[in-house]
Design a binder for these strands. Structure first.
Lengths: 195, 195
DNA sequence: AATTGGGTAGAGCGTTCGTTCTAGAGCTGT
DNA sequence: ACAGCTCTAGAACGAACGCTCTACCCAATT
């Protein structure tokens, strides 16, 4: 067997959470989609549905972090880097038929009231991504305070633009957000590091 | 009876959708929360759960539009207006214990695949709000192209910042987004209309 | 006084949910 | 050969789901 059963469960769950949220995703659907059985799922995740979801969210976080990191590293200028990021996201979103959005937003919104492990995993994901942007900005010479506020804004705006793009089935909201965020970043008048 | 049964159903459903999404909200919970019975619900909404949800989303759209309009009208300068908006949202979010977020996002994300009436209602809501911002910018003398792109970015960023604020249980993401959006709006160098 | 019809009330339908449970397959070390 | 282990397999449970259905209340109309 190529991939382990456990990995198949996590990956399939991550995709399902992304598309239909936490409550909308059933354990039995996960079993079918991952070609595993209920027995296997409860063997690897004695914590049940929530434990599977937490693992899937963490997987989604890393996957998205990799995409983000690659886009940020591809351009020395942070403004260009942000646009590269929204371009990649827009392309991926369109390719999936507008269903593969942010891997954590849907799950996060459904589990806000109960401060569960799942909710914590979602918060960790958002903060992790924010840190990637923050580091990029700091590396470009932005003052710490400006960089922090910009980083949270960039992640929030991308997050929101992705939802808007999905709902309208259009790349435009993401691309527009990318351009405006680039303008915002440039407005600080900090020269990109030459290499 | 003060409020009609139908109205109680719609209002209660709107709040439930906001907090736990579409799939997470049961018809029987709606009945309990709105002090109605199943019979009443299916009497007023023969279309079942989805019909109730559509009515609730439209109600949420109008409610949020009113808040948005008030905030936008309170300041002549569009940059200040956007910040006033995020301040109001942050205050409301904190007051609700971080659970009463955007009335449509949660429901929208769960119903992306099936192009249902519900999905359309969510798209209408987002576009309606965007138009309010657009009109404000146009009224301040922004060129049409810039205004359009700014308007979608503002709504997307507010949307995303609200989610981030909820997940982190903090006003800061919304306030930061407000400040950065104000900076972005000002970067176009258009004088606010004097009155 | 009788009738009509909008609205209320909730028992019960079939289905699906998350979870538990027992049984067995496939492998390793002795 | 046998015990011991991880992992697979799916039947079965109680609870909850969306929805249908019949029965009833009560104010307005005839």
């Amino acid at each position: 067997m190529q991939t382990s059963t456990r990995d198949r469960i996590v990956v399939a769950t991550a995709r399902l959470l992304q598309r239909q949220g936490y409550v909308g995703t059933g354990i039995k659907q996960i079993a079918t989609e991952s070609q595993a059985t209920l027995g296997s799922i409860y063997h690897f995740f004695p914590g049940g549905k929530e434990a599977v979801a937490v693992a899937a969210i963490r997987h989604g976080e890393q996957e998205f972090a990799a995409l983000l990191k690659e886009a940020l590293d591809s351009e020395p200028d942070p403004a260009e880097a942000v646009m590269s990021c929204t371009r990649d996201l827009a392309a991926g979103l369109k390719e999936s038929g507008w269903v593969d959005g942010c891997p954590v937003t849907a799950a996060a919104l459904e589990t806000l009231g109960a401060d569960s492990e799942l909710q914590k995993a979602c918060a960790d994901a958002l903060n992790g991504w924010e840190r990637l942007v923050l580091d990029k900005l700091l590396g470009c010479g932005f003052p710490a305070d400006d960089a922090r506020e910009l980083a949270t804004t960039v992640i929030s705006a991308i997050e929101g633009a992705e939802v808007t793009a999905q709902v309208n089935r259009s790349e435009e909201p993401l691309l527009a957000a990318g351009r405006q965020l680039a303008r915002l970043v440039r407005s600080y008048g900090i020269d990109p590091p030459r290499r």
